[in-house]
Design a protein around this nucleic acid. Structure first.
Lengths: 119, 119
DNA sequence: GCTTCATTCACCCTAAAGGATGAATATCAT
DNA sequence: ATGATATTCATCCTTTAGGGTGAATGAAGC
C-alpha cells in the first residue's frame, strides 16, 4: 500500500528517471514517430519499448493516436513545466535558507561587536 | 542486469521521484537537520527514512556529517542543475522541432501557392 | 560500569520496474 | 481468404523500491 497516491509530478519524475525513456522523449521532441521507429535504436525488445511508452503516457509526456494498425506517438511538454517548477522552487527555498542563515550569523557578529564595545 | 549503468542524472531523477524524499529535501533546503528530525513529520518508520536518505546521498543531493552519535544532513543543490538542464534542453529541442515542422509546412504552402499561380 | 539515545544493519514482505518470450489482435496488401 | 505487419496482451523472471521489525553499533549521560 502506498502511503500517498501517486501524483502527476511523481509520474513525471518516474517517467524521466530512465535513460531509455529520456532517449524516446528526445526522439519525439523532433517529431512524431511510430512504436517500431522508436524501438529501432534500442537493443531491447519491442515489447519493452511498448511498456516504456505506457509509463510515458501515464505521465502524459506522450500521447498516442491510433492510425490504422500503427500508433503515432507525440511529445507533450506540459508535464515538464511542473518538474521544472519544483526544481526552481527548491533552489529558491535553499537560497532563502542561506540568506536566513546569513542574517543569523550577522546578528551574532553584531551582538559580539556590541559586546566588544561594552568591554 | 541493467542495459546501461545508472548515471548521475538517473540517480538524481530517481531520488526526486518520491514525495517523501522531496519533502525531506524541502525541509533540508531551510537548514541542516538530524535523521530523527527529518523523520518526525512522517508516518513511516525511522528506518524507512534512513533508507530514503541513502538514496538522496547516492544522488549527492544530501551530504552527511557524523557528529558524535547524531548524523547531520545537508542539502546540496548541484545535482538539480543537471536535472534542470535536461528539461530545458528537451523543451528547446521540442521548439526547434516545431520550427522545423513550420518550415516544412511553409515550404508546402509556398509550393502550393506557386502551383496555384501556375494554374 | 550501566542506561539511554541516534542511527544503522540484517532480514522479511509486497509491489513495481525492466527485461524476455510467445500468443492474440487488428489492419493492410495481395 | 491469405499472409504480412504493427502493436499489445499474457506470462514469467529478476532487481529494486518502499515499507516493516528486531538486533547491533556507538556515543552520551549518569
Amino acid at each position: 500500500m502506498p502511503t500517498q497516491p501517486a501524483t502527476a509530478l511523481d509520474h513525471t519524475l518516474i517517467a524521466l528517471a530512465d535513460p531509455t525513456r529520456r532517449a524516446i522523449l528526445r526522439r519525439l521532441a523532433q517529431g512524431e514517430a511510430r512504436v517500431t521507429e522508436l524501438a529501432e535504436p534500442f537493443a531491447i525488445s519491442l515489447n519493452s519499448v511498448s511498456k516504456h511508452i505506457r509509463l510515458l503516457e501515464r505521465a502524459e509526456l506522450v500521447v498516442r493516436e491510433r492510425r490504422g494498425r500503427e500508433h503515432i506517438l507525440r511529445f507533450r511538454p506540459e508535464p515538464l513545466i511542473g518538474a521544472r517548477d519544483w526544481i526552481d522552487r527548491q533552489q529558491k527555498f535553499w537560497k532563502q535558507g542561506l540568506e536566513a542563515l546569513d542574517a543569523v550569523l550577522a546578528a551574532e557578529t553584531d551582538k559580539e561587536t556590541r559586546n566588544d564595545r561594552q568591554d
